[in-house]
Design a protein around this nucleic acid. Structure first.
Lengths: 221, 221
DNA sequence: GAAAATATTTTGACTCGTCAAAATATAGAG
DNA sequence: CTCTATATTTTGACGAGTCAAAATATTTTC
């Protein structure tokens, strides 16, 4: 039974690995993601390594073992089901549920979680569009692209926001964007490092390419 | 901001005080209720005392300050609203939600709690029949008696089960009893220290007077 | 009212997760 | 290939909450 903190490290390692496509997650990235000082990450990872939840190579990085991955996916499942509950059932705003879910994901029992899952009708994605792993730890596959990789004129559907930063979420939301929103790529300004998009029935907006990397999209129709 | 543990101590002090009707709660009772060794309770209570959440007299006991009481009632509110949610909305059994709520009561934000309260339609009692303090910390008054204090032949309605012990709750439930159940006092056996009651449409059951003290009732009709 | 039983507090130690800062390893620039 | 910059690990410390066991206070019993 890993502690809450251990669960959290496993989850962060999983997500960083997924985002970066690198085999090993560097300690620095993990520490930053966890909001701790690097030394703290090292000492925790050494414990996880001793518990055979990760494979850790000093000075190169860390990756999950099969067992660690299983736990990470369970935590992710909790997190995303809880977020769905908070938004769908209790009407909280999808841009503000992350921190709450972060806490609850380590508190709710398996028994209750499955009841909530039933109550929600076995949702497959959370309010950010992120896929919910199954109870058996299967992660539905999808192949979205970054908004920043799209070409001018393309019409796409936003499917995920790959960032939990409050300010960014608020920015996105204030422009009426959410998973499912259709947008057209209006102008790509290479020199200005920005992209202009046209949401349906909303004002056009311009964002930097760095921000555009955080929006995952699929071709619409 | 008291820690989770501190909140828990305050809640236990409140409940013990309420049940025992004594001015001061003895350290031993508190330690037992919290499931810790007596020395642990002492050291925690000293911290609470320093934070002016309790008044602590060495070797005699502890009681809540106004501030401590306010927090205790908030925690109790959380606890009971959460229990109500788990039973009413997610269909968990009312005899098994206590431990889960015990965890969640320290995890859920005020914001979410109020949303849940609205979702549930501002309930005034939890599934055990315990009153839910208002958001302002007002505890609805009621004047129930103990089942053990009733007289033979009386017809009463169970309104509260004053005990969170798993086995006792299961025992009660297996006989089809819950808050709202009507029962008639069949036989009071002074010598045998037991009481025999007749639930509606159920088999009669016999319980010791000690158990009967844990059931609070009101005269029916 | 003294001795025995019980309750409470004190002391010292432990685990967990953390930080600050020193030590060390690796990567990059010239 | 060496020197500097950056990343990582080590070390020593801390606060929270706990326990075990010794010390002390209170209550009960005779």
């Amino acid at each position: 039974m890993p502690s809450k903190a251990a669960e959290d490290y496993l989850k962060h390692i999983f997500l960083l690995h997924q985002r970066a496509q690198e085999d090993l997650v560097p300690m620095g990235d993990l520490a930053e993601s966890m909001g701790v000082v690097p030394g703290t990450a090292t000492s925790m990872v050494k414990k996880l390594n001793a518990a055979r939840l990760v494979n850790y190579e000093a000075y190169s990085g860390v990756k999950l073992t099969a067992k660690g991955r299983r736990i990470a996916l369970q935590v992710l499942r909790r997190h995303r089901i809880i977020e769905t509950l908070l938004v769908k059932t209790f009407g909280l705003d999808w841009s503000e549920v992350h921190d709450e879910a972060e806490q609850l994901e380590h508190t709710i029992s398996d028994r209750l979680l499955e009841r909530i899952d039933v109550f929600l009708g076995h949702p497959t994605t959370d309010p950010h569009g992120d896929p919910i792993p199954s109870a058996q730890g299967q992660l539905p596959k999808s192949s979205p692209r970054r908004l920043s990789d799209c070409s001018q004129g393309e019409k796409v559907t936003i499917c995920r926001i790959v960032d939990q930063d409050q300010d960014f979420l608020r920015f996105i939301e204030q422009h009426g964007l959410k998973p499912g929103s259709q947008v057209q790529i209006d102008v790509i300004d290479e020199a200005g490092d920005s992209i202009r998009i046209l949401p349906e029935r909303k004002k056009p907006l311009i964002m930097g390419s760095h921000a555009a990397r955080k929006l995952l999209v699929e071709s619409s129709g």
